[in-house]
Design a protein around this nucleic acid. Sequence first.
RNA 1: GGCGACGUAGCCAAGUGGUAAGGCAGGGGUCUGCAAAACCCUGAUCGCCGGUUCGAAUCCGGCCGUCGCCUCCA
Length: 470
Amino acid sequence: MTLHIYNTLTRQREPFETVEERRARMYVCGPTVYADAHIGHAMSAIVFDMIRRYLEFIGYDVTYVTNFTDVDDKIIVRANETGQDPFQLAQFYTDKYLKHLSDLNILAADAYPRVTNEIMNIIRVIQNLGEADYAYEMDGSVYFRVEKNEEYGKLSRRKQEKAMAGTRVDSDERKENVADFALWKAAKPGEPSWNSPWGPGRPGWHIECSVMCLHHLGETIDIHGGGNDLIFPHHENEIAQSESLTSKPFARYWMHNGMLQLSGEKMSKSLGNLITIDDFLEQHSADALRMLIFTGHYRKPVAYTAESITAAERSVARLQRGLRAGAGTVSVGEEVNTLREATEAARGGFRQAMDDDFNTSAALAHLFELVRSINTARAAGVSGPFFQAAQETLRELAGVLGLSLMDASGAEGNALAAKAFIDLLVSVRSDLRQEKQWAMADKVRDRLAALSVLLEDTPDGTTWRIEDPS
RNA sequence: GGCGACGUAGCCAAGUGGUAAGGCAGGGGUCUGCAAAACCCUGAUCGCCGGUUCGAAUCCGGCCGUCGCCUCCA
């Protein structure tokens, strides 16, 4: 089976065929940097990171570009409110977002274009659209002439309706058609602006992505991604601009992730129901968020609740425990063969699931089955090359989903100031157990547990880990 | 109002014609000094109604409910 991808443009699952063989060009819409990003933004970044990782896993050379909108109404408004320079404000949140991407284990993009670095390209494209009669100027602003593009609406399946005129914020603008959207906005006093053939101004929102794609990835890209809230108007307008200009398909596959929901609604700044990435990472691991998202399908909404994130954390812990070392000496025999078969089955099943429009939920099911096989083998005393190969497969396939499976307790434990004291207590307790002083030994264990230090006695000694009580 | 998505066990969730993956939680066991971890066993006929079919969670129609877009938004 080959990879099939659901294409929003055709509303169908299609075999994945790139413009250039073995090479995939991806563009994913990034954030407007005017405030702290929330885990809804993170979901989109994580989903497309997974897609990128899988494409690389199956042999594609991926060129991945994601942008920053660093000049825009919201940034200007925010800067005015706080008395900051809008460029500094945007830079601050851009840097912060880049840090978040890294903290969330998202692979670096090949380019992170920003609007403010693309102004000349943007002006040139708008000029070209004007020459082709797709754009017109009005009081120093330039608008895209929607009527001129016959295919307008093909992505969102929306007819060119004028019915919504009354609800439009900009209905007082003297546009030819209310559906026309700004390519270039004339500067108002005090706003950041650049000189252009139409006077000082700045780019409209949609044109930047068209230009950046063209500039960094070419006239036809393979995958264009973003949240499904961008389908209209943003992506619809991108298509109109790009295809009017080049007469070529803009993107072969339009992919959209579902929304992360908090208390039954889309997490968003405007609704105020959000959890910032900062806040999330203080409480939970990046793996936990991935697990929560990949338990379902990327196109479906995900409900974020205390219960769902806790369940996700425990699921991650189960995968991690599959990586615990084998203690036995059995390296050949029936148990080993069973493990080998399970490893192959997991690898094949994982791939088949992912080939089906990135069915991460089914893919994860195969990882959990592999964990069970590893645990069974470990209990049977299996170790050696095939045991390691099974664990390596688990680690590799989890890695395709961007799950690090880092034993957080170990890493944290080593950095923990209390580590020496905990080790001491554990050591004392081991002595007590030697002398069968069960009451005292249990007291130590219970008291540590109350402090979120959980002990496990194994044949090889006692281990401990930090885990918040649920 | 227009366009679109969804409704599967206590919770999350996969599954697009042939009698329901996986995870979390729960119950019963094995192991353990006791626990923990691990392993084994244990649960749903798929929102409701009607239709197509030898056969439907899966196709069609209606109803109810939830969510998204139509304005900035990952």
